[in-house]
Design a binder for these strands. Sequence first.
DNA 1: ACCATTTGACCACC
DNA 2: GGTGGTCAAATGGT
Length: 313
Amino acid sequence: MKRSWPENSPSKPRKAIEELVQGRQFANQLRGLLGKSIGDDGSAPEKDLVLKILSSFTNTLSLLNSAESDVDVDVSQVQPNTQASSPCWDAPKSESSGESCRSNSTVKDRRGCYKRRKTSLTVTKETPTLIDDGHAWRKYGQKPILNAKYPRHYYRCTHKYDQGCQAAKQVQRIQEDPVMHRTIYIGNHTCRTFQNVPELILDSSPNDSPFVLSFDDTFTNKHNHPFLSSSFQSVVKQEHREEMPAAADDITHNNQSSSSDYLVSPDQTALESFYNSMPVLSSSPMESDNGNVISGILVGSADFTDDDLLFEF
DNA sequence: ACCATTTGACCACC
DNA sequence: GGTGGTCAAATGGT
């Protein structure tokens, strides 16, 4: 599950990680200073630049650190034959969703009765700030994670039941850098209710990547990956898919489209090649005055508990 | 009253 | 059996 460094060179990557962590902490300190003097809207070019630096650090760290990540979702976890084994995820409330559930149990006894979705479409992001991603999330759980300093928070889409939206996310503060939060987006939004989310059109031109996005007329540089375009968003770590027809929930933006309208290709190989070929991180210089726009697309961490907010600045 | 969060309990997976 | 993911009652906020 977790990747590890080659046995013959275990120390160098770790040293690199340490250096990167330190660099990222320095960048965070600088960002804090800038934040105090500039404001918190993220629109200042200085702050934007710092965020990009942070993103670079985080990205590199994430690549190096994936083997140690406590929320690691490795591509190797993809288990195609588990696609149909997630009834509780798709319809967790339904009585029929838990085949393994005790049939005669009371309502209270049905707690935790579900089929855990082992693998699914997931996108891991690390964000230096807690920015509303435009979706409405409801927290449904919090768990302390073994060997992790900070608990993991579980969120589901607010419209899970009224619209059947399957999107969920897990948020956990990164141990090495508590300012950063690692958000794992699971599944894609099928709800139509969005706040502050701009128009986002997936360009499915056949000659290019089927996942190219265009952000209306304010965001047209197609070489930037949708996940990676924000100066706030730091890392798209890994992704794999299972039964979800679309790519990341946040890039679909189906507020104006039904689930069948997803423009992201469901083809897994295309998806993989897309993510393999894309640059690890690219920070768009174009979104600086549209921070809210981009954050609504790319950055998770909408709802946080008090301890999360302690680190907000 | 309604909605969101908290939190202990339950259960699947390893 | 341990860990992590989810449920749902209890609680709090508006």
